[in-house]
Design a protein around this nucleic acid. Structure first.
Lengths: 129, 129
DNA sequence: CTCCCTATATGCATAATGCACATATTTACT
DNA sequence: AGTAAATATGTGCATTATGCATATAGGGAG
């Protein structure tokens, strides 16, 4: 892994791009969902299904707390409605910058997957669906 | 994570697909490279750069040993040429089946990334490069 | 009164990785 | 000859991330 991961706000990307291969996809998904609408963990857990992400509650809550530690989201308790208290998260400015940064990584990652699939097709032309 | 990961040889895919998000990309890359040509760890380490994968030697060697435990590759010491002995790996029949199985996962993973990027573009139309 | 859904959180075992380090062979340079 | 560097594989250790189980608590349905 390179030294400057996660990418700084100045560079918007790290220099070696090695994290393309270990993309912790839940993080950019949370940032995008929170850009669209402030939300809480339990709701986000369900929305993550749209990105084929597993719905383990512990993982979602811990990732949200981690994003908050990094200053990418902020939270406050919300008890207006019925039911248990919710921790309502919203995206910060740094979080929005990080979202844009992630997009570069994800585009590159997509290109790598395409490269793999093309190379596979070259070896197995009959299986290229 | 679902119970039937990795996918069995019968099903070719697991049922919940949650591993799409945690794709250990080094494994399918090793299988594809070994389909193209039997090789050893040090050489594979360099070829993995083509797929943007970090070149930590320990990770490569340990993944190869793991693939061998699972019966997807086989190895034998090779001392014909000059230099230190090499452990020469080649793909097994099960390994080739697993490679085909991985392709389904990677295609789905690619579709998820495209879904993310499209959703991002909807939110930031000016940034859609 | 109990069960289930909503909502958040912690503890523990497991798995995977990065880095440092160890070892051995051969080549290249001084 | 001596020493550094490239080739080649491997282990040990600390860190990190995850899944699963569990705990807690509010509120609605039967």
């Amino acid at each position: 892994m390179c030294k400057d991961y996660p990418p700084s706000q100045e560079e918007k990307e790290c220099s070696c791009h090695s994290h393309v291969s270990k993309l912790p996809f839940i993080q950019p998904c949370l940032l995008l969902l929170l850009y669209e609408k402030p939300s809480h963990g339990y709701e986000l857990m369900e929305k993550l299904l749209e990105f084929d992400l597993s719905l383990d509650a512990a993982t979602v809550y811990r990732n949200l707390r981690k994003l908050e530690e990094e200053g990418l989201v902020s939270s406050q308790w919300y008890t207006q409605e019925t039911g248990p208290a919710r921790r309502l998260y919203k995206l910060t400015m740094d979080g929005e910058d990080m979202l844009h940064s992630w997009v570069h990584t994800i585009r590159r990652r997509k290109a790598v997957l395409e490269k793999f699939l093309k190379r596979y097709s070259n070896n197995f032309p009959n299986r290229s669906s």
